[in-house]
Design a protein around this nucleic acid. Sequence first.
DNA 1: AATGAATGAGAATTCATTCAT
DNA 2: AATGAATGAATTCTCATTCAT
Lengths: 192, 192, 192, 192
Amino acid sequence: MARPRSEDKRNAILNAATQVIAVDGVSAPTARIAKLAGVAEGTLFTYFNNKDELLNELYLQLKSELREVMVPDALTATTKSAKSAAQQAWTRYVSWGVAHPQKRKVLAQLGVSERVTEQSKAAGMVGFTELNAFLSRCVGSKVLRQQPAPFVGSLLGAIAETTMDFISRDPPRLEQYSRAGFEAFWNALGPK
Amino acid sequence: MARPRSEDKRNAILNAATQVIAVDGVSAPTARIAKLAGVAEGTLFTYFNNKDELLNELYLQLKSELREVMVPDALTATTKSAKSAAQQAWTRYVSWGVAHPQKRKVLAQLGVSERVTEQSKAAGMVGFTELNAFLSRCVGSKVLRQQPAPFVGSLLGAIAETTMDFISRDPPRLEQYSRAGFEAFWNALGPK
Amino acid sequence: MARPRSEDKRNAILNAATQVIAVDGVSAPTARIAKLAGVAEGTLFTYFNNKDELLNELYLQLKSELREVMVPDALTATTKSAKSAAQQAWTRYVSWGVAHPQKRKVLAQLGVSERVTEQSKAAGMVGFTELNAFLSRCVGSKVLRQQPAPFVGSLLGAIAETTMDFISRDPPRLEQYSRAGFEAFWNALGPK
Amino acid sequence: MARPRSEDKRNAILNAATQVIAVDGVSAPTARIAKLAGVAEGTLFTYFNNKDELLNELYLQLKSELREVMVPDALTATTKSAKSAAQQAWTRYVSWGVAHPQKRKVLAQLGVSERVTEQSKAAGMVGFTELNAFLSRCVGSKVLRQQPAPFVGSLLGAIAETTMDFISRDPPRLEQYSRAGFEAFWNALGPK
DNA sequence: AATGAATGAGAATTCATTCAT
DNA sequence: AATGAATGAATTCTCATTCAT
């Protein structure tokens, strides 16, 4: 009940949750999560009031991690061309997704789960506003420039996820798929 | 001689499952499904040996329904240009998705659920082979023609889903999003 | 509900019950029994009003079969000595038990089951009255002649069952155990 | 640090199981057992992983209790004659059985139950090895000395159980039956 | 009479959460 | 604060029995 202190323990729980949920889904028991995190069953509830809160915080944390991966200082640097800046974000996304398949899977599960609130989903998108705006600026297309900025961002996300699905089934072709996926995205924006 | 097993009842259960799972997720109780289907709790288990089997069959049924929606005789008609044939499949997909948001949601949930077997997922894709092959043929792009046919199909699926997400949040712009989404997909295939 | 006619079917059910209960215990489902008997689930209930009735009738039938095995016309024949007459009954019992381990096992289970009524148990003993009386007459012992006839009969049963337990674990020594068991029983009656 | 698992509670469950199973058989619901034990339904499963485990442990516990009753220091005392030592074990057995009819009944039910594993049954016999060996040494009989030690022990058990069955139906004759039963057993071993 | 689908009252677990230690 | 035993509501599935065919 009282506010806990150990940030380490909190992270251990979040990490354990990722591992366990990746395997057993959102219905994975909190007891299993606690055990893997190396804390007692009850301790989990001093860090998160209940399972739903844990789920929502995990969602937010993963979203935020992904954003940090994708949006470093790269975009601020105006030196780069729009395309190469976009490509850098893409590459970082794909690398992260390939390196952390469990986080990716859990994000997918939480993203469609009824236990993650609309509020959390909205909050999860906030961090991407800047990125979306940047991507939107890249669009010279007649077609896409009229759509809201988040649409372009979501498109990138969707295409990247598809790309990673194929990579995960055929890891040696990582490079090939990654390049093809990005070109598809870039083309999708339309001709200048 | 005894009462024959009723296809209607089976469908009622499958439909009820869709409704209930759309709201409560995969963990929706079988009792609720049975009740909505208008059968006794136990009856559900004469049609499906257990909940997992129900889930897998539901997944397969929805996949198959979607395929039937997308691949009518349209593709056989050679009169049409590749683009307009693809557009027809797209439009049918989006119309179906918009008309059946619950089915769409359930498909998304089952697609990432650990309770739907790899086997079911593989079986679910089989029906799309023909469609994927067609789409693949549409590709004149230097970039995408080297990728496997399913990649193109998955791309269409991913972009369409993203499109429908935006439509569902802003229904009046259905036309606008649908058109933009298709153009994005078509452009993604690359220049001729 | 109506009285059935096929005695064959009734026996098939009783036999199937024996097989199934020997393996799965008294809690074996009626559906399994019906299936093995080659009749429909519901048909079982036209031959027996409910499972308890089936269980009680099975108990009675097995008891009666055992009695018929043990008490042929042998005992009437006065030509034989008491010991050899008793031995004959013993041998028949053991042979039957060894030949029908499932029946023996089921009898043991039903004998301690709360679902077989006291009434059935009492009825099951009736058939053995004659045999018990005979055995009692064999007793010249100071010790045992004062006990009720059923005590002697039960003693024989208990020793025979023990004997068969050992035979079933070591079949080649059938003869050895059977002889030793009978001698033990005969000695148990006491010196003349 | 947390509440330690309570041996008392475990025993309460075991005792409750005995009471309930004596009346309703092995299929007695765990909910009833828990209630009688004064614990929540779920608590039963923190002490026993599942019902079968409870059943097996109960079997083992009762067997072990019986052994402790029968094999005190009596057998070590060489002062006594073989017969009076055997008689002491017999008397202790019968007294225990008469004093604890429920335990006796449950032991009988578990002994023939398919839910008690062969392993448990074997483990249950181990404790009687010493007693069996002793009884075997008592045998001067031509007949029984050639049989394995457990045979003699089982014989004692079978005769004692039969004896107790008669006592339970006619308690006033406890002494009479007990004496007769023991003489029968002693005689069964054969003449010296 | 025979069939087997339909029923719904259990039965054994499971599990988020609480609370004694 | 941390622990893990205790709780009991909820869940899946079973099964004797009924009943439409």
